[in-house]
Nucleic acid binder design. Structure first.
Lengths: 178, 178
DNA sequence: CAATTTATGTAGCGGTTGCTACATAAATAA
DNA sequence: TTATTTATGTAGCAACCGCTACATAAATTG
């Protein structure tokens, strides 16, 4: 890899962390530049424009999240074990920044704003792939449906978690195990 | 009601519609002023500052949404009928703006930003109240849990709908009726 | 070494943001 | 009618935003 390309990748690395900690709203070129020890001028040297930059950084963040999911992959579990387990994971400090960013991404995605809509769909698709691998089901013919159910439920838990509706999270999880 | 107060309420009415159509991001004082035929200068005459203004407008929108929920209140339905029914409602053009705004609100709420966090919690609480009235359950002792489950599921559906993951919505709903 | 490409600084443009200072006109209260 | 409160206009400030023009220094390539 060329020297310039390496610097670009290093900047992407710094910006990833900045965005995870500070969100999309704070992600101005000047702020991102400061966070990676350079100038907005230089960022626009490495990237065509801000959309191009965000596309690359969001792609990198997406990949990290996918890796993180794969790393935490146990053997397949049934729905009423897997979903509560993921429900607990939402509380972990390492996960929280991803959830905040996920919701910010979703807000943009719901307006079909690019590159956010595409990034969000890609992430959701990787969630689906995750459930496909890690959700255990009794009747094989209902696998797809249960995957979708897990996806929908965990997304719902994410929203409730953002509002600190912990009681409802627990109640919903109890309803599931019944 | 005094004359000034009436004008203020009229402005709130206009701003409600503007925000529902255009989202929080576009809701600058100048844009809101234009949308209700006045100037930013005048808005800051009626409201202390932008946060005060947003608090009042979001409160009004919340009330509208609550009224809308109450209006569409049928007799109590079981979970596997109610949730699919609400799933269909997400597609309705009259509802879409509320969903977009809801997600935008949630993105702010997840950062504990005021007045958004409080507004979002209030709206979610009214959702809970809605399920309390309209969800039919067999075993009375599991009512709370089923209410929470409905809440979580429909929120999950909202997220998936924003990404146009219609297939997964349908699959999840099928998993539910089984 | 010369020519060319890549890297970086400085400065600024035209736009937006929330908000304010200073003015005056209009409505209301005494 | 006079005094006081309320309404409204005009203008601008300081801080941001993405982006660009113009310069030069440094590295790479022929």
């Amino acid at each position: 890899m060329k020297k310039g390309e390496m610097k670009k990748q290093a900047h992407i690395e710094s910006m990833k962390h900045y965005i995870l900690e500070n969100g999309l709203t704070k992600a101005s070129l000047r702020n991102l530049a400061k966070a990676s020890g350079t100038s907005d001028r230089m960022l626009l040297h490495y990237f065509q424009d801000k959309e191009d930059l965000m596309t690359e950084v969001l792609q990198a963040i997406t990949q990290d999240l996918i890796d993180l999911l794969k790393a935490n992959q146990t053997e397949p579990l049934p729905l009423n074990v897997l979903v509560p387990h993921l429900g607990k994971m939402l509380k972990e400090p390492a996960v929280k920044p991803y959830l905040r960013l996920w919701l910010e991404l979703m807000a943009e995605a719901s307006k079909k704003e690019e590159p956010y809509y595409s990034a969000a769909r890609k992430i959701a698709a990787s969630f689906k792939a995750f459930y496909r691998e890690v959700l255990l089901v009794q009747k094989e013919e209902s696998k797809e449906k249960m995957d979708a159910l897990a996806l929908v439920m965990v997304e719902g838990l994410v929203l409730m978690d953002a509002l600190d509706f912990d009681e409802d999270i627990n109640l919903a999880l109890q309803a599931l195990s019944k």
